[in-house]
Write a protein that binds this DNA or RNA. Sequence first.
DNA 1: ATTTATTTTTAGATTCATCTAAAAATAATA
DNA 2: TATTATTTTTAGATGAATCTAAAAATAAAT
Lengths: 223, 223
Amino acid sequence: MVSELSFTEENYLKAIYHLSSDGTESVNTNSLAESMNTTPASVNDMVKRLAQKNLIGYQKYKGTTLLAKGKKVALTIVRKHRLWEVFLVDKLGFKWDEVHEIAEQLEHIKSPNLIKRLDAFLGHPTMDPHGDPIPNEEGIMKETVRASIAEVAVNAKGIIVAVNNDDTLLLQHLDSLGIQLGSKIAILERMDFDGSVSISIDEGPKQFLSKSVAENLMITLTD
Amino acid sequence: MVSELSFTEENYLKAIYHLSSDGTESVNTNSLAESMNTTPASVNDMVKRLAQKNLIGYQKYKGTTLLAKGKKVALTIVRKHRLWEVFLVDKLGFKWDEVHEIAEQLEHIKSPNLIKRLDAFLGHPTMDPHGDPIPNEEGIMKETVRASIAEVAVNAKGIIVAVNNDDTLLLQHLDSLGIQLGSKIAILERMDFDGSVSISIDEGPKQFLSKSVAENLMITLTD
DNA sequence: ATTTATTTTTAGATTCATCTAAAAATAATA
DNA sequence: TATTATTTTTAGATGAATCTAAAAATAAAT
């Protein structure tokens, strides 16, 4: 009974979802406007419409929250977005940072059957190339565990999701090791005396990271 | 310089392309309206807009034709549509008759790079699951050769594109042989004395068709 | 508690794609 | 050729999604 939402409506719901996913209980007009790259007035118009469709809760001057129906839509969009990203990277060979825009379009394709088949074709992935979890059909997703290489257990596997430092020398060093955002990493050993670790990138050969490098490399753990 | 067309504009161009692909030099308002499932008045509005953008030629009461720019857009849409259909059938396991609607949506995804990669991923197909040719990047496509099984050379391969008869018994017979629209067929031998042929469906075992069945089965030849 | 600043809402326009109803042009027929 | 039928176009409206500019409400600061 969620009649047939426009791309714009879907994008608003997704934006509200993302803005409230960090515990914020109510999303205000201004931040939504910024996130949607539009004006507060436009947001206000749209918010009224979504509220009337019982997708979001809204009271004048009090911001908005997703209602059950709206949250379900948002999670479906997020699911589709992240599945398509996996497709683009794993099957079509796109780089981690090239896929967002295309997935922004693909996420609005309407066909539950398509997504079911795509999911199976991709091997039911639980994480997208950025290390973000993919909601299942019920909208449930694993909580992602984020940690630096320095604090993670030996034998852990994960995806590089951030570098806590923009020092050019560090970035060049990572580059020479073949480490990029989205790379799959396995922690092989940790040397206790100096905190250095041996790792493998994308199933490649063993390589070494000093403690200071390891501390700056953030990953999300893969199952 | 084809700024950024809306889905609707793209669909109009595609419709004009299809309506004029059978030699008709000029597409009239009424048939476009029927094809677009809308009113002549709406068509008239849109046609003016497309003409102003130099995508189509239009003179009052004289119908429309695609100009070079519009034809290029139309062929790109057709290319995308058919490539996505191949993806849906070959990779996701959809049936021949389930893919059109989804491809209607996917054809509007804007990313030349995506299509380039998809094309490579699919092995640069030249024909879609319905036996229609896929335009290349320059908009050029092979002419399809359509013929009945009865008139085609031994060793020919093709795709079933039509059954020239809606006799239930014939359809049931084809069904029992595993023959559907979209099936790949190879002609193995022809018995001259009765015109019957032996064939293989989707690389399956050898099967036999009587002349009367062969006459009713239309295929397009694969390269 | 006023004043000032920020946020949010309203009012009124605009653009796109559409519609209905009616007028105008063209084509077909008697 | 006059009449009828068909096709096409115009005129005027509507509903989304947006905008700008200004008013109203709330929050922050003096």
